[in-house]
Simulated scan of single mutants.
Amino acid sequence: MLSKELTYLLEKFLQGDRQLMVLTGAGVSAESGIPTYRGVEGYWTKGSRNYKPEEIGTLRFFQKKPEEVWKFALYRRTICKRAQPNLGHTSIAKLENIFRDRFTLITQNVDGLHLKAGNSDHRTYQIHGDIDHIRCSLNCTRTLYEFPQEIGEKKQGEGLTGAEWELLRCPECDAICRPNVLWFDEFYNERYYRSESALKIAGKTGLLLIVGTMGTTNLPNQIFDTVRFKQGIVVDINLEDNLFSEEIRDSRTGFLLRGKSSELLPQLVDEIRKLRGWQPFEESI
């Protein structure tokens, strides 16, 4: 059950024209069986060596050992492709169906489960990239290439064949391509991660739902600060407290909902539907 205070503010929000933004992290997909990148299962073991995500998930490491990074990336891609959306994902897709052009999804997840659940490409900002595209590691071109479908599922530690390695070469300069993901030693940009567009929409956001993220990266923090500065409502849906919690707890327009997103998001969707009379917003022209 949502509190009376939150229900009241949701009703006021629905009467206006500001944006609904949903910001998601690894906690949403963890319920679909995808290990969080920072958890124990996010480590990469090579022989007796355990590489931390902050080490192997870097451009510097890729430049030294590209095959190791690709083996790690392909194994995680296999896990992601096998996974199915859970009720958290489908509830967020329902929110887009309700709000339409008042809706934006900002996700730190690269697994594609939001799109598989029904969210649209043009309203989904994958600010850490995605597993379905690759790009030149030397930036000879800014083109994104579709991931080669000839490369199938990979077990943990399984290497690439010579033919598969050739499929990962840039069509323009023949350099090895890289996963289209944001690594730990890189910065956000508009071209690949739509960072400027995300912040622009944050300035128009009246309701921000934070789901399954600890708030440890820069752009989500900027989004949160922007929404708070614009006096938007913030609802944090997580299993435990995160870097946003203290400020939300001290705010009259901030709410902490603790529990599984697959359980709490359906309740939130039902409440919004009741307040809306089950009618979606009109598409803007």
Rank of each mutant, 00 (worst) to 15 (best):
D101E: 10
Y125I: 13
L87P: 07
F103I: 03
Q156T: 11
C140T: 09
I98E: 12
T143W: 08
I92K: 12
P148W: 01
I106E: 13
H128Q: 08
T141G: 02
E96C: 03
Q126M: 13
R123C: 06
E164A: 11
G112S: 05
G129P: 05
G159S: 06
D121R: 15
R123H: 14
D132I: 09
T161A: 01
Q149W: 13
H122F: 13
D101P: 07
V110S: 03
L87V: 01
N139D: 14
N119G: 09
L160W: 00
I98C: 07
W165M: 12
Q149S: 15
R100Q: 08
T107L: 05
N97R: 13
H114A: 09
K154M: 05
S91H: 01
L160Q: 02
G162Y: 07
G88M: 00
A117Q: 08
E153M: 10
D132M: 07
F147H: 11
T124H: 10
R102T: 04
K154F: 00
E150L: 09
I98M: 14
W165V: 04
K94I: 07
H114E: 11
F99C: 00
Q156S: 14
R169W: 02
L115I: 12
K154H: 00
K155E: 15
H114S: 11
T141R: 12
T90M: 01
P148G: 08
I106M: 12
E96Y: 01
G152T: 04
K155T: 15
Q126E: 14
C136Q: 04
P148I: 00
K94L: 04
G129Q: 02
G152R: 09
T124F: 06
L167P: 02
G129H: 05
G162V: 09
H89M: 06
L105C: 06
Q156D: 14
L113I: 06
L144A: 08
T143Y: 11
K94A: 14
L138P: 03
L167F: 00
T90H: 06
L113V: 06
Q126C: 12
E146C: 11
K116W: 14
I131D: 15
D111G: 11
S137Q: 08
I131T: 12
L144F: 09
R169M: 10
T161N: 00
S120G: 10
V110F: 13
P171A: 05
L144T: 10
L113K: 11
G157P: 04
I127T: 15
P171S: 06
I131W: 13
Q149N: 14
K155S: 13
A93K: 02
T124Q: 12
C140P: 03
W165L: 15
N139Y: 06
G112Y: 03
C136I: 06
H122V: 14
W165T: 07
E146P: 12
L95T: 00
R169H: 05
H89R: 01
F99L: 01
G88I: 01
H114K: 01
L160G: 00
